[in-house]
Design a binder for these strands. Structure first.
Lengths: 353, 353
DNA sequence: CTGAAAGCGCTTACAG
DNA sequence: CTGAAAGCGCTTACAG
């Protein structure tokens, strides 16, 4: 049913129907009620494409998630949806397969659908750093506000985009320092991905781990960096288990503590240790990252870096709404720090003589 | 940039631009190439709202998720997206808060956006059974194909809607029978929600548990049905932990086995048992439901019902595509059974004398 | 192969 | 308070 049919049915002009449906002032209350009742009864709903075409803008923001979606991002997504809804914006979600992470894909959907803004949730980019920089530049050409949430803009070209970023590097450094302060020297890192992808959380966390070692004057042993056995499902239990199992088959345990790229990998790795007859924390200390429920209900309770999801979502929504409502607004960069959540998965040891 | 501007720029009519952008036959290859290059260069993308308005239909299907989203549904969602994309359909996701689960909400968005079809992922309905039936009836009035995925149509009015449903009742009965066959008689169920909501998975699984007990002639003890301590986050570790903790504080353990409403609740409950000094499976056997990764990497490996996600998604996509491409097609009902995954969380016991 | 024109269903000045 | 009309950006018969 169209506006025209409903108008005829009610014996009024289409403009009157439009005013009634949009709750404008200049309709008599009686007419408005009559029209709305008729709409309800006949199931008339204004076509949003006609409306969008006429007004040439939507009230929608697009959320882009690339690759696999962990529990963490889903939580942030739900918080974002709520925040945007409160401000009168609708949220749409699109998944992008890794291989299709090109500016043109985004450009097409954003321009075609007339989105008011885009939130990149989690990482967005190509494996290749060069390509990622190009990507970032092309995105900047699209005249729609964008904010990168949970990942920083790694365009290496200054403040091109707004972002709200968890400070992964610092968080991983804090966790590593926590181990060092408790006497650990042989500290391994599990869950490093393939090379050349600074935009990924694992790369930032690995960098933080390295920084902490360097600051403490502990020589870096490349053999202690355990690469992902299942890189396409990097942040999973499976990857944690398989990565460490592979490593333990290659040789004996030559570390006293393990920094995992995230909680799931930590708990997967703990499974591998257990199967090898090693106990956490007696035979190997363990720290995770993210602060999932899982970490809290695991035994032993996992020491980890709690991500402040509400804070991340709140900041992202705020930056996005600013950018949408104040065109020409400068880009904003927000760094958000997690807090170290102490569990029972770390045991102090005597420093090596 | 609009089609008109690009036409002027290229010195052709808008109709020619339209033909070039839509890759029609009746344009000379040279003209087509020239126009497409110009579009690429100037960032011209056809407005989808204008296109939709003109064609009066989209190629989008709407996926509706109500309430909290577990890991399981996200996996199904991703599989669905892939399947629909293969058939040329775009997938859009909308979350519905529990309290807003009314037919009119769906009606509005489906009609406004001209969706071709709707998939309800997970449960869709009101607490109140009466209201749910009304809801189902009103949905049936909307002239757009719908399929209920992972939940059945509980309109109690015959085959009103298509659905692809995991057979939760049977699965839970299978698990309970598995315990009974191993000598258990005092079997508790943890994670029952508030009353009056047959559409929820917990209610189906609870019914299956009850059926199995009845079939074995074991009297039902209402005291063995442990209600959710955190009903708004029913299928979570937190709920499993809190529900069982509450129960263990009320009195000693008076059961030898525990059927959990899902894997997360099972593992949360295991945490509560552990804190009470009880071991799984020595002091209490435990089964979950869903077959999450978590169940596999938990220690002891959890006995659970594996949900065949790929199969569920495949069937849902097939039914939906049938309905969309063959209007007037009869509704289809597909029941999908899981398979029992044997872990080490169940110990046989001697039957009570 | 190309162009001129109608029309998809709305909204909003403009006139009354 | 209400109506008639223009126009948003496309697509597609229709004519050449």
């Amino acid at each position: 049913m169209t506006i025209r049919e409903l108008a005829k049915l009610c014996g009024v002009a289409v403009s009157t129907v439009s005013r009634a449906m949009n709750d404008r002032e200049n309709v008599s209350p009686e007419t408005k009620e009559r029209i709305r009742a008729a709409a309800e009864q006949h199931g008339y709903v204004p076509s949003s494409s006609a409306r969008t075409l006429k007004l040439s803008e939507t009230n929608s923001v697009l959320v882009v998630i690339q690759g696999e979606t962990g529990r963490l991002l889903i939580s942030v997504l739900q918080l974002l949806e709520t925040a945007f809804a409160k401000a009168g914006f609708t949220t749409n979600l699109t998944h992008i397969v890794d291989s299709e992470a090109e500016a043109s894909t985004i450009e097409r959907v954003v321009l075609a659908e007339r989105y008011r803004g885009v939130v990149f949730l989690g990482r967005y980019g190509n494996r290749d750093r060069e390509a990622s920089v190009t990507l970032s530049r092309r995105l900047a050409r699209i005249d729609v506000p964008m904010v990168f949430c949970t990942t920083s803009d790694y365009s290496s070209s200054g403040a091109m985009h707004s972002f709200v970023s968890a400070d992964d590097q610092r968080g991983a450094a804090d966790l590593t320092r926590y181990l060092i302060e408790r006497g650990h020297r042989r500290i391994a890192f599990v869950g490093a991905g393939p090379e050349n992808d600074a935009g990924h959380a694992w790369a930032q966390r690995l960098a933080g781990y390295r920084n902490a070692l360097a600051d403490a004057g502990i020589p870096q042993d490349p053999g202690l960096i355990i690469r992902a056995a299942v890189p396409e499902r990097l942040y999973t239990l499976e990857n944690g288990f398989d990565s460490l199992t592979t490593r333990l088959m290659e040789g004996m345990i030559d570390f006293t503590a393990l920094v995992a790229v995230c909680d799931e990998v930590a708990i997967g790795a703990a499974g591998a240790l257990r199967e090898a007859g090693l106990r956490v924390p007696e035979d190997c200390s363990l720290v995770g990252y993210d602060g999932l429920d899982l970490a809290r209900y695991w035994s032993p309770k996992l020491t980890t870096m709690q991500q402040p999801l509400a804070e991340i979502a709140e900041a992202t929504a705020r930056v996005m709404l600013n950018a949408m409502t104040q065109p020409g607004h400068a880009t904003e960069q927000v760094w958000i720090r997690g807090s170290l959540l102490e569990g029972q998965s770390v045991l102090p040891i005597n420093p090596q003589p």
